[in-house]
Simulated assay, not measured.
Amino acid sequence: MTPVTILTGFLGSGKTTLLKRILTEAHGMKIAVIENEFGEENIDNDILVQENAEQIVQMSNGCICCTIRGDLVKALSDLNSQRDAGEIQFDRVVIETTGLANPGPVAQTFFIDDEVADTYRLDAIITLVDAKHGQQQLDQHEVVQRQVGFADRLFITKADLVTPEALGDLKHRLAHMNPRAPQQEVDFGQADLKQIFDLHGFNLNDKLDIDPDFLGADEHDHDHDHDHDHDHDHSQCDHEHDQCAHEGHDHGHAHHAHAHHNDAIKSFVFRSEKAFDPAKLEDFLGSILQVYGERLLRYKGVLNMRGIDRRVVFQGVHQMMGSDVGAKWQPGEMPNTKMVFIGAELPKDIILQGLERCLV
């Protein structure tokens, strides 16, 4: 299976700079770059000459670059056919989305099309965020919020152009939108390629990365103007702050300085040490995906299921969800559930209460 990395980010975030480095650096890897070309920002002509609607250019370091204006499935299929025929060589693919694109449909391609799914493995989505203009872009363009929500890793560019306070505010906002994506500052595309490839962001594994500060006190500071039903039954929750991430259990105010942004894309976490009833959970998740699937960008969890002495891991994009049995719970380890949901205007209380009702 050929690993694929999706590179996304708004116009001017630095994708082209990073791509130039991937296409020219002597890294010893044979990488095929698919550039989803709509004319906003293209690799310089001295690196890639664009004369035809679709063409493949061989690079001096063994990489190739394919510019497409059409169907991604066809582009991936054509690349694989040419590789099978011995015309080109590559062992991984990078797809650059246009700066105005929602990466969701690109990610779905790897689950919907059988030929693509049999040949390629979606490794991760990397989103670049411009530190200088990121806050404004997040305010004005929901597609930028979606790019952040889908990310497995966030690269913050142009951090040297803003104050430490402004950078901290941006990181804080990004963590609340997507707590499972590690953040890293990169300088003019000088990201370590190890931070780009083989991240296994779409692998089903027992490790669920959530930003450690996400469940801190400030999660609840300013969120009472949305997504919060003060009348819902808190008796279903164990009332311990780390047991269940309901808004309203405020145990401190450490970060009042952070501005509140009413972002459409938000995330929340569900935790419990009680086991799920498998049949109830399957029915509930099925109904949630059917009704709210298009609003769910990414979701992932490590679950404690009744009758199973192993972790059950799951994740999904929109309505497409996969699950598998993971490692055994270790002796002395308390089996527990940890789930993160990232989406657009999700009914947080409905989902959290529904999950509570699925517990044994």
Rank of each mutant, 00 (worst) to 15 (best):
I6M: 06
G12Y: 02
S13W: 04
G14Y: 04
T16N: 03
L19A: 01
R21I: 00
L23H: 01
M29D: 13
K30T: 11
I34Y: 00
E35L: 10
E35I: 15
F38L: 14
F38K: 05
F38C: 08
D44I: 02
L48F: 12
Q50H: 14
E54F: 09
M59I: 12
C65S: 10
C65P: 03
I68Y: 08
D71L: 12
L72A: 08
A75P: 00
S77R: 15
N80S: 11
R83T: 07
I88F: 03
R92E: 08
R92Q: 13
V94C: 06
I95H: 00
T97A: 05
L100A: 05
A101Y: 03
N102F: 00
P103V: 05
P103K: 05
G104E: 09
V106G: 07
A107G: 04
T109V: 10
F110V: 03
V116G: 02
I125W: 07
I126F: 01
V129I: 13
H133I: 07
Q135Y: 12
R146W: 14
Q147K: 00
V148F: 01
V148T: 01
R153S: 01
L154N: 02
T157N: 08
A159D: 06
D160N: 02
L161C: 04
L161S: 04
V162Q: 05
P164D: 03
L167C: 04
G168L: 10
H172K: 08
H172A: 11
L174D: 07
M177C: 02
A181E: 07
E185H: 06
D187F: 15
D187S: 15
G189Y: 04
Q190C: 11
Q190H: 15
A191T: 03
D192S: 10
L193E: 12
F197C: 08
L199W: 04
G201I: 07
L204S: 02
D213H: 12
G216W: 00
D218L: 08
H220D: 14
D223A: 13
D229R: 01
D229F: 01
H230Y: 10
D238V: 12
H246A: 02
H253N: 10
H256Q: 14
H256N: 14
H258G: 01
N262K: 12
I265E: 11
F270M: 02
S272Y: 03
E273Y: 10
A279G: 05
L285M: 14
S287F: 05
L289Q: 10
Q290P: 09
Q290Y: 13
V291D: 14
K300V: 01
K300Y: 03
I308Q: 06
D309C: 09
M321P: 02
G322N: 13
D324R: 06
V325H: 06
V325R: 09
Q330C: 08
Q330E: 15
E333R: 10
E333K: 12
P335R: 00
N336R: 15
T337Q: 05
K338T: 11
L352T: 02
G354W: 00
